[in-house]
Design a binder for these strands. Structure first.
Lengths: 212, 212
DNA sequence: GCGATTATTGGCACTCACTGCCACTAAAGA
DNA sequence: TCTTTAGTGGCAGTGAGTGCCAATAATCGC
């Protein structure tokens, strides 16, 4: 039997493509973050965000299940950039060395504006508990992807406890380092700082082994 | 100058003690969790919880800033139990050995009912995203306590990156292991399972160093 | 081009989480 | 008992988020 769904004769308006939808979410996300940063999350209403983004409030709520989810598209860019690098981790290399070589934080093909926006969001999560919760949830979802990569690499099942622990640990390292770099780049991001970020991750990974 | 506030001549009704307040929160927490488990978080209203706990809705909202926070008191019991064990970590011992010796999970002086309730909450967080977010937030708060302990132990400042990374990593290990044991104890908790929990944490800590 | 068909949007009303305000009661000391 | 301070409950209000339906947009067969 074919694992693809039986090709139904399509009729009517086709559903919007997934990338299209992601793009739209990202666009709204940018407006939301600007508002959050300017006046705080609590003081920013869904209506405001919708208006800023140029959609009706109703459709805004269809794109985001709750206000805090507005930070997801931007944060996802960052997290999935790291996941991509991990995926490309060649078998013969140490993780640390691979990161040194391949990790151009935070996002490879991203505009400078987006890098700045992402760091802004991370900074926001450090003072806005609601956003922090969303951030942590997102990170945990990403752990599954990390686990996938690690599982493939080691041959262990994806839900083996060693795999999940390592995934969680890597994620934790990345979180701490990211918080740090976001704080450090309070105003003005330089390439140097992002390089520092990479070195910090590498060093921290090494530090993990030193849990006496 | 004295670092204690100048002793004001107390008048009127004294504020309720902190333990008293915690007890009350815990009590409400138990009712809330029972309801959450029975009918889901979304279907449980603040009014219901308040009624079940025997307080007015208004005071309920004074005890908890939002519904999901109802899980905090129970979860805090678990997390702080681990922190206590860490505090007692003697300098000459390996962490793994110390845990094997001193960690009687999940809570030392707790009733069996509370252990069961805590595991129930953890299980709930695995299917209720809102509760999961609260759980993750709580865990991150606990990282500060872990960092404190590690800092004191190593002489490094509490906000040194090595310290925060190690704290986050330990926390991550604990999280994964806790999720596992909560799943395993779907029905019926035995001492064996809790011992298994301890061993799993110990093994996972060892696994951390194997990040090739 | 014209309908028929399906997807998305926007508007409206509604529920409910949560807050501010105020009157009321409880627990102290004078 | 009177005064003072803290906690409680009720009531009204805001705003997040949802269900429902009418309107519009995009596609196909003709």
């Amino acid at each position: 039997m074919t694992d693809v769904v039986t090709e139904k004769p399509r009729r009517g308006r086709p559903p919007v493509s997934d990338e299209q939808r992601q793009r739209q979410r990202l666009e709204i996300s940018r407006h939301a973050v600007r508002l959050f940063a300017g006046q705080g999350v609590a003081a920013t209403s869904g209506e405001q965000i919708a208006q800023a983004a140029g959609v009706s409030e109703r459709t805004f709520w269809r794109y985001f299940p709750h206000k805090e989810a507005c930070v997801e598209p931007l944060l996802t860019k960052m997290v999935s950039a790291f996941c991509e690098v991990l995926r490309a981790w060649p078998a013969e290399l140490e993780l640390i060395d691979h990161l040194r070589e391949a990790y151009r934080p935070l996002l490879d093909g991203a505009s400078d504006e987006d890098i700045e926006a992402v760091l802004e969001v991370v900074r926001l999560t450090q003072h806005e508990p609601a956003l922090r919760a969303a951030y942590l949830t997102l990170r945990e979802r990403a752990e599954h992807t990390l686990a996938e990569v690690l599982a493939e690499r080691t041959g262990l099942p994806q839900d083996a406890i060693e795999i999940r622990v390592q995934a969680a640990a890597i994620s934790a390292v990345l979180k701490v380092a990211t918080d740090d770099v976001a704080r450090a780049t309070g105003k003005g991001v330089t390439r140097d700082m992002l390089d520092l970020h990479r070195e910090q991750i590498a060093n921290s990974l090494r530090g993990l082994s030193q849990l006496r």
